[in-house]
Amino acid sequence: MSYNNIIIEIAEKVAVLTINRPNQLNALNSETIKELGDAFKSLESDDNVKAIIITGSGEKAFVAGADIKEFYQFDVAEGKELAAKGHQYLFDVVQNLTTPVIAAVNGFALGGGLELAMSCHFRLASDNAKLGLPEVTLGVIPGYGGTQRLAQLVGKGRAMEMIMTAKMISAEEAYGYGLVNQVTTQEELLASCQKIALKIVKNSSVAIASAIRAVNAGYTDGVNGFDTEIEEFGKCFGTEDFKEGTTAFIEKRKANFPGK
């Protein structure tokens, strides 16, 4: 599949997905959102991909925000549809993907860019990164999950402050908030993400998918995360990966998971 705004490279079962709109600081327009959603679904179904890293092209921005020119004249109904489609096509897709997704935040992650990073399973940032949700300066609020995911990640008080002041925080502040897992230099960012991804791909992809579903359940209204954990735990016992993992442990060898 060919794309206009993204580049995909796959090596050692790790896919690197790069948003490639450097002249627009990788801003998310409707075409890019659609391409990203399609790409994530395609990579999830690829048996040769066990982890995904998403980043932005260039050294200035991961994603500097949404493309305001596309929606500044929208009315109420069109605004609601814009947010709903974004959730459906991309942001919820990433959060619920059963292949782990790591955000490599290489610069500005603002508005929709931070919302995209937060929908990933975890995040690493370069030391020049700036993160924020500046939507209230435009008379609107985050509409791609930002009000919900930011509060889940950093707590209600900090989320309220970031959203209401529209302030950008540094990578080090984001690390202190628990918004990113690690801060590296710009040069080391992708290699650090690759190092983590290569650790992930050695483990059972079936168990990892179960873990993602169980963790996400705890943040889903009307769902008991503990019940989901019990259900997913039990399902693991019927997999080939469980048989291989436990047998390898008993035989004191490294497991070779079939991913089934």
Rank of each mutant, 00 (worst) to 15 (best):
L133R: 09
A159N: 05
A125Q: 01
A125H: 00
A159G: 08
G107W: 08
P100C: 14
G145K: 06
G143S: 13
A104D: 06
K156S: 12
T99H: 07
L116W: 08
G113M: 05
K156Y: 07
L116N: 09
P134E: 06
A103R: 03
I102A: 02
Q148L: 12
M164L: 11
T99K: 12
R158D: 15
T98H: 13
P100T: 10
E161D: 15
R158T: 14
N128E: 15
E115T: 01
I102V: 12
R158M: 14
Q148G: 07
L133M: 11
H121C: 09
L124V: 00
G112A: 15
G132C: 01
I141A: 11
A117I: 09
D127Y: 03
T137I: 14
T147Q: 09
G139W: 05
L124I: 02
N106I: 08
T147C: 13
P142M: 04
S119K: 04
T147E: 09
M162W: 10
G143M: 14
A129T: 11
Q152F: 00
K156M: 12
G145A: 14
M118D: 03
S126M: 10
E115P: 02
S126K: 10
M164V: 01
M160I: 12
A151T: 02
M118T: 11
H121F: 07
V94F: 06
P100I: 12
T147H: 04
V105P: 01
L138M: 10
V136P: 05
V140I: 15
V136C: 01
R123D: 04
I141E: 09
M164P: 00
V101P: 08
G107K: 05
Q148P: 00
T99A: 01
L153D: 06
L131P: 03
S119D: 12
A129F: 11
M164N: 15
A109K: 02
L150E: 09
D127F: 01
